[in-house]
Design a binder for these strands. Structure first.
Lengths: 216, 216
DNA sequence: TCAATAGTGTCTATAAGACACTATGCC
DNA sequence: GGCATAGTGTCTTATAGACACTATTGA
């Protein structure tokens, strides 16, 4: 009996102002017809490393291509998989809702269905990390589809962190980060009110997280 | 051919005011007689999970028992081990120099010998993380053998971070953390000068890191 | 009393948070 | 003009850093 080595991806997005995770329904045993994270074995031929395996899984099972992807950590032991001692490397990604295919189904991270393996514990741990990290990094920008307005980004941060953020301070901190580029003359109206300026991410920060010194 | 799954431990300590890593000389192939991190295969029978495997390796190969141990991340791919596609889960631990056995040899992390596998890259990455983390956490306290004085701890922080820290501010921040417990009446003299108060770690923080909000 | 290190009080600079304000667009 | 949202100026408060000071010990 050999050790089982897999990767799993926690694909997070914002829907109805709540953090959701993308799951799919397993077909094969173990856990047939049970919801699970997109994941699978490392393919030695195709995957140059574990992160490449996670990207492949996201592409094949969730239809998401090359998002911002970060290693979370490993989960291992002899009880988490009925087939034997198993280790999974967990990655997480944040994407805008509209970039998801219909291969996956979204569930609120605080209201999960029954899940295969230890995936419930994995999602809980990742959600906690992401919420904490939102407080001192630019992580949540990856939840907004470009181009976006500051008020949209502001609402995204409030949804992830879970408490109101002062708009004036929010703008000042965003300025300090220097990750946004104004799109001259491009505005977006949300009602019959003043239009908001549109922005995109500065190229250098497209796939790189920006850590704030003192928190959002 | 099956995937290779191992754990490696980066055991760090302070010696001559410089960060050192504990290495041992390999005997078997691959890389016979080359310096390497303490590490090895997961033992499905003995190890309840990967962290337990790392603790076992530290106990057996380095003679260090149950230190503060944290997962760093994984290194994987088909080129890092001549035997095939391999993944290692890297853990790191910080210990006082005098708690190390003579099974291992200490090398400055900035002046390493030739190393097996990708262990040089692993040590570089861990050292960078530890130095960065020293700036906003209580991590370096694990480098001091208890009981210790504030000036000793102060010197440890300066050595890890690499720049002078103001003593008055250092004390204030330590107070805020509330991780030290004064040992009443116990003092230590280092020369013929004023004696320094001895402290031990508060029990609750023995194996738990304390993160500062705003950095040391 | 001197030298050396231990330990403290307090001023200053900076950054975060609170809040009131102005600007724009559509009715 | 009125209302709703976009966006700004500035005061207050918390915290980090600088620095000068006092305290204790052995010689």
């Amino acid at each position: 009996m050999t050790t089982i080595l897999t990767v799993d991806a926690v694909l997070l997005t914002l829907k109805d102002n709540r953090l959701h995770v993308a799951l799919f329904q397993r077909e094969a045993a173990p856990y047939p017809n049970v919801w699970a994270l997109p994941g699978g074995y490392v393919h030695e031929q195709e995957d140059s490393n574990a992160q490449a395996a996670a990207l492949r899984v996201l592409r094949d099972k969730a239809g998401v291509d090359a998002p911002y992807l970060e290693e979370f950590g490993t989960f291992s032991g002899r009880t988490r998989d009925p087939r034997g001692w198993a280790l999974t490397v967990v990655y997480y990604a944040l994407v805008p809702e509209r970039s998801l295919s219909d291969k996956v189904t979204l569930f609120p991270v605080d209201d999960l269905p029954e899940l295969a393996f230890d995936h419930a514990a994995i999602i809980d741990a990742v959600a906690a990390r992401v919420r904490s990290k939102a407080g001192y990094s630019s992580l949540p920008v990856f939840l907004c589809a470009e181009p976006f307005t500051i008020p949209e980004l502001h609402a995204t941060y409030e949804a992830v962190i879970g408490e109101p953020q002062n708009m004036a301070n929010f703008r000042r901190k965003l300025d300090d980060l220097q990750i946004l580029e104004e799109l001259p003359g491009q505005l977006r109206a949300t009602g019959r009110n003043r239009k908001a300026q549109l922005y995109k991410l500065v190229a250098a920060f497209k796939r790189q997280l920006s850590i704030r010194e003192r928190g959002f």
